[in-house]
Design a protein around this nucleic acid. Sequence first.
DNA 1: CACTCCATGTAACGCGTTACATGATTAA
DNA 2: TTAATCATGTAACGCGTTACATGGAGTG
Lengths: 191, 191
Amino acid sequence: MSTGTTRAILGLLTWHPMSGYELKMAIDSSVGNFWSESFGQIYPELRRLEALGLVTPEAELGSNPKSKRRYAITDAGREELRHWLDQPPKIRPPRNELLLKLFFARQGNAALTRDHIAETREHYAKAVRTLRHSEDAMRERFKAHPDLPYWIMTIRHGILQYEAIVTWCDETIEQLKTLSPLARKNVGDEQ
Amino acid sequence: MSTGTTRAILGLLTWHPMSGYELKMAIDSSVGNFWSESFGQIYPELRRLEALGLVTPEAELGSNPKSKRRYAITDAGREELRHWLDQPPKIRPPRNELLLKLFFARQGNAALTRDHIAETREHYAKAVRTLRHSEDAMRERFKAHPDLPYWIMTIRHGILQYEAIVTWCDETIEQLKTLSPLARKNVGDEQ
DNA sequence: CACTCCATGTAACGCGTTACATGATTAA
DNA sequence: TTAATCATGTAACGCGTTACATGGAGTG
């Protein structure tokens, strides 16, 4: 009931009724930057939400089990969504494999470490460009949509966050340059 | 073998032999900002690493099953660590519950939304202060340690990242102010 | 007719946390 | 001696991904 996950389904169903497949597509293309769900979660979750009366199948379409089965949110579902929105979000610092490797980087190959940071930099620099385009596109496309300001906020979050990472990568690569000649010599000296 | 997790154990054991309990403490106080392990993982993992010959118990201490059991990294363990360090880190954007709620925030209570952002702001502002202190303390305490530059880099990552979040929170709160009088009116209009 | 995309669903697995059980050691 | 802390370990659970099985519908 209070899993914290799969609430995205209820949120998206406030737009209009959707099938499991449509939900997956909608999640990837709207909240994909900071949320994801897989089919393996969506379909069972829809059944569960139906059993709880939070969503309801749009229409009985008889026998065929492979036809599109759209669900609409119910009043109880809206209530549940509001209740979830009222709760403060849990802040949990995610694991960061890049940082873990960097923490022990002296044990490894300095050149590869630098490469990894550089690749990370490019990844996030590209992501920033994508988000900027997506911000422009949304402002244009949903000019009058009442949800637009909130959507823009989530995009801005990505932009600021990723820009910070790019800055950090640049700073770190500079720092590594001053280090690598010595560090490389040290590698293999252990034990 | 290539789980990606619990490699922190091998990294920390390059410092000196440690018991499961000591590893947990060391993880929390060194890489705790971006990595975590629970006892439920550490103890079984040590057994597994021992079976693979990547770590070895420091000394046989006979019968008592509750006495400290320290493990040292082996040459094979060092080799495995280096191999892992060579692989590019996987970048996977984490789920962000705050952003998911913000995305659907128009369905909820505008005042509470603002509170959530404000609390988030304080959380990260505090984290930045803590990290700054910890950076200073480390520079002082491990002045001559060859790993120091890498440790500082991981701290800098946190500082830049969290500062960006604080900036975003401020920007977002401002934006919400221009919105809330209208948004609040809209709530409950659905259906 | 074959291929691809749309579409629903299940089963298995991986990984991580939490809760629990147990006991040694140390300090009030 | 009682409580807190140190210390090891297991079992259960939650949650999420991946792989698989199935089949409809449209297109070349």
